[in-house]
């Protein structure tokens, strides 16, 4: 990533209507609907919240700030979605933020009682951004349903920190904050598991990848870009072309050539 703090501040303000203070670390909060995302949001930010709409959309946008270990964080609550394949406005917003806003850390909240459906979203997030923390919420509910989740091996499988929480009881939130600090500072490296597609899909990606590489600057995840273009996702095409059109780094590159 080659964005300066100032460029990022401008980008967040102009495209997402979010004011990032100087030196503040920007965190995105993603997750399926009804996984206790807002409980975690409230628990982390308390009353320091600002709510509004995403620019030009009738979708709620909540941001909240908090301090931890003398660092200032801005938590952006993304709309609850099952996927990022952009079939709804909410998914487009979540996808565009993760892809084009370069949050310093992304927290994916998972419902431990239906892990499969929630991992679907987590793996999609992993394709876009590497600095991810998985927050395995509703552990108390999972326990009641006698679902045993081996958190250390989940962490190994996913390649990112996994924090087990029961946010309604306030369990695990301190650990979550610690991991946020560690991942943001880079003292904890993440290597998120990448989806292995069936051979036909991989072949198609391989075909398109060189073209995509010549197209975008190296801040965007190329493989994922290729997949979206192959997916024929028009809403993504619009977001991408508007992003490429306004991004100053990109323009500079082109004009220099």
């Amino acid at each position: 990533m080659n964005l300066t703090a100032e460029q990022k501040r401008v980008l967040w303000e102009d495209r997402f209507g979010i004011s990032l203070a100087d030196g503040q670390i920007g965190i995105a909060l993603a997750g399926n609907p009804n996984v206790g995302k807002s409980t975690i949001f409230n628990a982390l930010t308390g009353l320091h919240q600002h709510t509004g709409n995403w620019p030009g959309k009738t979708v709620d946008n909540a941001q909240g700030a908090f301090l931890y270990e003398q660092k200032s964080f801005l938590l952006v609550d993304l709309p609850g979605t099952y996927s990022l394949l952009a079939h709804t406005v909410e998914e487009q917003i979540a996808r565009d933020f993760l892809c084009f806003a370069y949050p310093d850390v992304t927290i994916v909240v998972l419902d431990a009682t239906c892990l499969e459906r929630n991992l679907n979203l987590a793996l999609q997030v992993f394709e876009i951004t590497p600095k991810v923390i998985v927050c395995l919420n509703l552990m108390d509910e999972a326990e009641k349903k006698r679902l045993m989740i081996d958190v250390p091996s989940l962490e190994r499988e996913l390649g990112v920190p996994v924090v087990a929480t029961a946010a309604r009881q306030g369990v695990g939130l301190t650990e979550l904050k610690q991991k946020i600090v560690q991942v943001a500072s880079g003292s904890l490296q993440t290597n998120p598991r990448q989806i292995v597609y069936s051979s036909e899909v991989e072949k198609a990606v391989k075909q398109l990848l060189p073209l995509v590489g010549s197209l975008a600057n190296n801040t965007l995840p190329l493989r994922w870009l290729a997949l979206r273009l192959l997916d024929g996702d028009r809403s993504f095409l619009e977001s991408l072309s508007s992003y490429l059109g306004v991004d100053p780094c990109w323009e500079g590159l082109r004009c220099a050539q």
Partner: peptide, 11 residues
Amino acid sequence: GLLRRRILDLG
């Protein structure tokens, strides 16, 4: 359409 994608996304 949308329903197909919804259903797929739910696994």
